[in-house]
Design a protein around this nucleic acid. Structure first.
Lengths: 135, 135
DNA sequence: CTACATGCAAACCATTTGCACGTAT
DNA sequence: ATACGTGCAAATGGTTTGCATGTAG
């Protein structure tokens, strides 16, 4: 099933790619926000022989293919998530580092308005809310 | 006048600090968003003998003192601006790299709402809109 | 006089790249 | 068979740090 997705974007179906795709899909509702290092460690735990460089290469290819989104939080680490198409934003707990997603139509609207008002052709945006989760 | 500001936050008044502060203040309405490298180059042009490491150290100290904000756009370069207190967001032209500022009370509001709804104590946010400026 | 600042070079660390070898198609 | 993928080690580039010297207070 995943193999088809790879072919569709012109990438050969290889083990590293399948495994990385699987890892991105497998993560539960939370914690499907992984750094390249995270993905690499999970691969090692599964006794897969994949180099970190390959993880970076594959994630970058996935990003270019629109399969994956690259996020830059304040720790200047790239974190990756499957691109589900819904254009959600992120809420990051400054204590635990956990990431929550949300979609807010009002904000979405304002962003389009602002781009228009200022004479910009909107190409994207990045919104991250930082806070402490109480629990 | 700037010297007082430095003393107030417990930093000794030195030439590199004064110069860097001056550079941050001098920039016109646009383009007061500078990387460490930018600041360093401007110092060189003014024949100031300041090392890049010092620029980084000073900017970081200014950030901790609340004099300066550090921004992370998608090019993973830190850019710095004076912290004017108004909590504005940014609009970046993907073609020219030019940065515009804006404040939107509606978005500000929604961000507070969202943090509250999700049970987070809001500590900050980062919103960058990317687009192409037509002109 | 003493604690803090600075310059320089070296260290760091996430990410990228060159290259020789493998493998999907 | 051939273009593309991979692992490894080395390179990169922004940023930080150790250390010996300078200077603000």
């Amino acid at each position: 099933m995943s193999g088809a997705e790879l072919k569709k974007v012109g990438l050969k179906v290889t083990l590293p790619r399948l495994k990385i795709l699987e890892i991105l899909e497998q993560q539960g509702d939370e914690d499907h926000h992984l750094t390249a290092e995270d993905v690499y460690k999970i691969l090692l735990e599964q006794d897969e022989e994949v180099g970190l460089a390959t993880v970076y290469r594959v994630l970058t290819q996935f990003e270019q293919a629109g399969i994956v989104r690259r996020l830059n939080f304040e720790n200047n680490l790239s974190t990756f998530e499957l691109d589900t198409g819904d254009n959600h934003d992120h809420l990051v707990c400054v204590k635990t580092g956990r990431v929550k997603e949300f979609v807010d139509p009002i904000i979405e609207d304002r962003i389009q308005q602002i781009a228009k008002e200022k004479g910009y052709e909107l190409s994207g945006h990045s919104l991250v809310i930082y806070g402490t989760c109480k629990e």
